[in-house]
Design a protein around this nucleic acid. Sequence first.
DNA 1: TTTTTTTGTTGTAACGTTTTAAATTCCCGG
DNA 2: CCGGGAATTTAAAACGTTACAACAAAAAAA
Lengths: 349, 349
Amino acid sequence: MSRKKLDSIEESTSKPSSRPTLRTVAAEAGVAVTTVSRALADDPRIAEATRKRIAEVAHTLGYVPNRAAQRLRTGRTKVISLLLNTRHEFLSFTSEFLGGMSEELAGTGYAINITADSLADDRLEAIRHIRRHSLADAIVFTRTECFDDRVRYLLEHDFPFATHGRTDFMTPHPFVDFDNEAFVRMAVERLVQKGRKHICIVMPNERYTFGQHLRFGARQAAISSGVKVTIPEDVDLDSEPDEIAAMLRTLHAGPEAPDGYICVGEVMALITLAYLNDMGLTPGCEVDVVAKRASPISNHFRPRIETIDEDLRATGRAMAKVLLARISGAPTDEMQVLLKPEGPFSVSG
Amino acid sequence: MSRKKLDSIEESTSKPSSRPTLRTVAAEAGVAVTTVSRALADDPRIAEATRKRIAEVAHTLGYVPNRAAQRLRTGRTKVISLLLNTRHEFLSFTSEFLGGMSEELAGTGYAINITADSLADDRLEAIRHIRRHSLADAIVFTRTECFDDRVRYLLEHDFPFATHGRTDFMTPHPFVDFDNEAFVRMAVERLVQKGRKHICIVMPNERYTFGQHLRFGARQAAISSGVKVTIPEDVDLDSEPDEIAAMLRTLHAGPEAPDGYICVGEVMALITLAYLNDMGLTPGCEVDVVAKRASPISNHFRPRIETIDEDLRATGRAMAKVLLARISGAPTDEMQVLLKPEGPFSVSG
DNA sequence: TTTTTTTGTTGTAACGTTTTAAATTCCCGG
DNA sequence: CCGGGAATTTAAAACGTTACAACAAAAAAA
């Protein structure tokens, strides 16, 4: 433990108790600042003995690295920006997804930064802002469209990102998506099992990519099962419940009234159930309903309905993994995750 | 516009197109770095003419300040940390509250940073971490308890924060709360108007401060209206729906079955409605239900119930204001906001 | 032994701000 | 025409890190 030139470094006993820095630790351990920096970063150039000693000193001194300084020096923010729709979102999407991401990010030093889009009239504005000010190392957002301008922008500028949902761009990019095609096939199959002949799918219009996947799955299922499948055209994520109800009413008054409903999301399920109730139709009797369940609250819907699960917490976790991979420069094809639906379940609670 | 000693500052035409810094702007405008810094911060020491000129140069150069550098220099993070419960939270709390905060924070340069508590077994750990690493200028969290250890910790360390919900500490601190006392009084009054004689309040136990306020309001309402008010003891925010249903069943089987229900929150409402449905009881007929509505989704519940509103978006906005005030050191008594319930409304859609 | 390589360690220079103290200019009364 | 205070502007010193180039010492090769 012999130290050379200990005095050359100012002892800094003057300042009483401001937070210890690399210098403080270096002085205490009798080494250079660089050495401490490297030791704490597990740089192989540092001898094991020194590394251990420095780690110990740093710990007893209660050293904690200054994020601002690291960020200034390295240019990395250790922040992931999540663009959030706080209106018209699936009921529990925000909580569950956020929870999942947070879980996965714990311990990595990454923080989640929220930008709620309520403010940005121009959707791109938020993203431009984040890039220009280097507010994050990566961006993630939802409700992806087939040729999403945000995706185009981020691809063009080679800024790390991942989307919830696929796009139709030629250039591949990181994403996490739910297999909506499989979902709708399973749902149709289940309703057919129950003897239903005309199935209505309550879902957003084709503006979003997942809408297209649903349509595609619906077409497939219709062909292979032989039942009639109807997709009302004018429903949107932002549609007022009244509009949706009106649309369902029109459909029901038509020549062939649907006897099976598939609801893509909890809000859609609630609206559909309310509509059926208002019409005096009871799921399980005259009609059947299968809905996408994204959180335990679907269990409390009455009358009981059948559900097929999208695990949003798992989605969040997968998203975090994908983002971290993208940041550290993994190949794109390893960053495309498609999650499978689980079910159908007959809700029991 | 005569410039002296222009050459003394390196023209830096060497680097091609990295982001402009204060130095770049200073060189271009023919002034010192300090002057630019001050000009952009609207420091009164800078002459109006210079300020204007610098602003212009900065704009055409596309200058954008480096947050990391500012943060390192000033010690301020421009971040507000939100501790979030992603499990068992009121259905739409996260989205709405977050949206509100985000709205209010837009343009202030402050970012919202999420820490989902799923990971922190020790609730204090997340807060300690934020403080130790100076990850935020202020912290906000929910589900406040009467003598909340997080509040105690933050008060002790004089770290800026605000809570959603009050506490019973002597030392006043910033908060935004909903007037649950008024809520329950209104709800009871409404049920009494409808001729109900025995009211059951489905709500979390007294662990949280707002539970106490509800109890207090309930007692007042019971006395002034003369009806019987029952509060089941064992319900908690984390209770399984089954437990709650079991509890309601026991109560219903007792000597006096309730004929009115007050639900504090959307999840509680869903559970109660499911229970009533399972029991063959119909709100509006044998019983009546009044629930707290925190988002438009309550409108879709069937059978229809009456609601009293808590505006979570407004809560978020108020919270942001309070936090900003706290950060800039306003007196505490100006940072205590109590929001009033609105209603009751008979849901129509 | 001398030369080369390997292994650890060290100074020093940024990164882009803000702040402190000092320097310059300006304006006005003496 | 000069001295003095206000009004502006400036240079230089941090803030705490990481990265680059250099260096010493020990180990291996010649």
